[in-house]
Amino acid sequence: MSAPRVAVVIFPGSNCDRDVLHVLRGVLGADAHTVWHEERSLAGFDAVILPGGFSYGDYLRAGAIAATSPILAAVRAAASAGVLVAGICNGFQILLEAGLLPGAMLPNRDATFVCDWTRIRVERDDLPFTCAYGRGQIARMPVAHGEGNYYADADTLSRLEANRQVVFRYVDDDGAATAHGNPNGALHNIAGIVDERGNVLGMMPHPERCSEALLGSCDGRAFFEGLLASIAKRAHSVAGGGR
């Protein structure tokens, strides 16, 4: 069985691509590769990460132009084939704009960019992205965005909640999902969601920024470790182990 292959997509304006690669390769020794936005195939990859940044300058709306780029067709195809897709920050915004996840991002409640530490509660531990966390575990993770105020209509919100698609929720120091713990005004304190099948995830916090003790928290490392472990496990369970 070969090591999981992870793609990190680079759009012009991406600025967390090198950070995600650093954690995957440098910290975790994973087999990670960059994929340029003009490419049209993601064949051979077990997981795809859309990193943070300001793709195409976030002109029009955050993530809007990236959602129409050539690589997004490949991301769409990979997602429907069950490949794990994770969008972090701008990557989440792109997945929303591409319709791969429901809802939209509004400007932050305070109308300014916010870069700060937050606490997020892991609502599910049965997903490939969260299998290395415990259910209800509270992780300390930074956010850095101007548009992270998650919005969806009431029906969508109740469907997300009913289907247990809310994966991460902002909480305060006491672990409660209050306005005080919410850095941007996101509805239901939503920090991250997953699609109905459970293989496409979007999150505003940056797990790559808290994967080394030196940087103030290691709580993000389990995100990548879980992702890699679950791919390895999947491959193992497939007869012959081939792809």
Binding site: N15, C16, R18, D19, H22, V23, G52, T112, F113, V114, C115, D116, P142, A144, H206, E208, R209, E212, L214, L215
Partner: peptide
């Protein structure tokens, strides 16, 4: 003021 600036990107800020 400084929480309006991304001071963490590039993963070097100790």
């Amino acid at each position: 003021v400084f929480r309006q600036y991304d001071h963490m990107v590039q993963l070097n800020t100790v």
